[in-house]
Structure formats: structure tokens, C-alpha cells
Amino acid sequence: MSSPEAYAKPVPVPDPDSAPFWAGCREQRLMIQHCDDCSRHQFPPSNICAHCGSGRLSWKQASGAGKVFSWIVVRHPVPRPVYIDDVPYVVALVELAEGVRMPSNVVGCAPEDVVADMPLKVAFKQVTEEVVLPLFEPA
């Protein structure tokens, strides 16, 4: 990656539901919502629990452990100028130990080495002055 000013990829715009998640990433903490009534987690965040409808939600730090639920290998860059230096890259639906799924990139291994259920751990990456993304690498 070149200088942060030149970062051309989409950067997340936090909203009232998601602000604690992105703020957590800036502190290298993977924060996900936890329902204080049914004790389940959810991601992406919402104003109520998708499992039981409760509004009693709190934010808990996830362990950062997960595994590959599904993955793709992007070979054709779209838009071309933005991703031409990145292809091939891996996007995975990561199943966290807490039972929720999260899209991310798998880094730190060849795309060909990614397999289903492969154990992963979170690896934070600062991409602009304000934004840190939660990526995953082989555990």
C-alpha cells in the first residue's frame, strides 16, 4: 500500500449502529454485539437482537478466532486501477468462534492454500489515519 492519502479503496463510514465496531478496530479489538437476554451474538450490529427481539444489547470483545465458512479468489480486478496490484486476493466469510459470520480478507497465505474450515485469527490493518480493518490470517 502507498501513502494513506492515496488509499483508493472504499473506506467504511461508521453509523450509529456500527460506530462501536469500527472504534474497536482502531484499538485492535474485535467488538461484536451480545444480547443480554438470550446471550447470543450478532453481526452486523442492529438496534435489536435478531434472535429474540430484545433491545438489551451490549458490545463484547470477540476472541478473534474463526474459520473459513466460504471464500472466493478475485482474479479480475474491479475497478481495475484500484485492485490491479492486489489480484489474486481472497475474500472469505469468516465464522467467528462466537457463532457469527463476518466478511474479510484472508492474508498471510497463498490463495491456493485456503480451504474450508481453515482456522483463522484476526489481524488488524491500518489503512488510513482513521480506519483500521479487521483482516484474518491462518491461525
Binding site: 472504499p10 463510514v13 453509523d15 453481526f43 474491479v78 480506519v131
Partner: peptide
């Protein structure tokens, strides 16, 4: 090509096009 609302959890990772969505 932006990352807000539902796309804030997908686009930052280069998961953007419908072929990329359906490949998953």
C-alpha cells in the same frame, strides 16, 4: 463504490461485484 450501510461490512474488503457475491 462506497462503504456505508450494508456495504461498510463488504466493500472495504474488495467484495463489490455481483460475480464476487455469487461466487461465495
Amino acid at each position: 463504490f462506497r462503504a456505508l450501510g450494508p456495504t461498510q461490512y463488504t466493500a472495504p474488503f474488495g467484495w463489490i461485484t455481483y460475480p464476487q457475491a455469487m461466487a461465495m
